[in-house]
Design a binder for these strands. Structure first.
Lengths: 108, 108
DNA sequence: TTTTTATATCGCAATATTACGATTAATAGT
DNA sequence: ACTATTAATCGTAATATTGCGATATAAAAA
């Protein structure tokens, strides 16, 4: 039915999957990597960087922002985007914990 | 158009986004967490654990397996699934690198 | 005030995802 | 051989995502 039964899962499961989903598209990963490379905050010369229309980039930015992966600050007529480190820290911690709790011996 | 322009992105960007996409659903995150909890390998008492039909769970397992997040071994009539640590290690490393390269000072 | 410039949003078409029941396939037990 | 049991696959309906062009909005520049 294409509709996810979110209410059956824990808040953390929904949160993690929402963040992961936002990274579940190569264009959005490319945007993140571009933001990392240019270091300082950017508006949308991302449009010049990626082979996608302005409206498409804008949508991707919206999803990244909703997931908390980037921040956006209005600066005159443009908007300055940058990485929101804290959300990436959540992910890093989550996967670090997974690796810690995996028991190699008890695998098939 | 709902079709992703994969050829415009790097192999790593496609790889990371594919793994993230597989984790972009709460049911699949729940499956991973269940596998972690029971430690030893499982077939599908996951069906008893989650409020989803057997065919739906099977699909989710397939996607997790395709992304390399879990491994499956045939054991008689059932299949034993377990976490594939190496792929989680890739993610952990990727996010650790992101955090290392973020420059807090140069943010908006 | 008019014109740029930068972004967001709307509406649409194509495709993908999610979920289920029904069916199939394959092994184990009787 | 027959019957469970386990899990994958098929068909399908409902919904979501992706992407674009066109339009809207809002601030800066002329």
């Amino acid at each position: 039915m294409g509709v996810t039964k979110k209410d059956h899962f824990t808040e953390q499961q929904n949160k993690i999957s929402a963040i992961a989903k936002a990274l579940g598209h190569p264009a959005r990963v490319a945007i993140i990597e571009y933001l990392l490379r240019v270091n300082t905050c950017i508006c949308s010369d991302i449009v010049d960087e990626l082979p996608l229309a302005q409206s498409t980039i804008s949508q991707h930015l919206k999803e990244l922002k909703n997931a908390g992966l980037i921040k956006g600050n209005i600066e005159g007529t443009s908007i300055c985007y940058c990485i929101d480190e804290s959300t990436f820290a959540v992910l890093k911690q989550y996967f670090a914990n997974i690796i810690l709790s995996v028991n190699d011996q008890k695998c098939c």
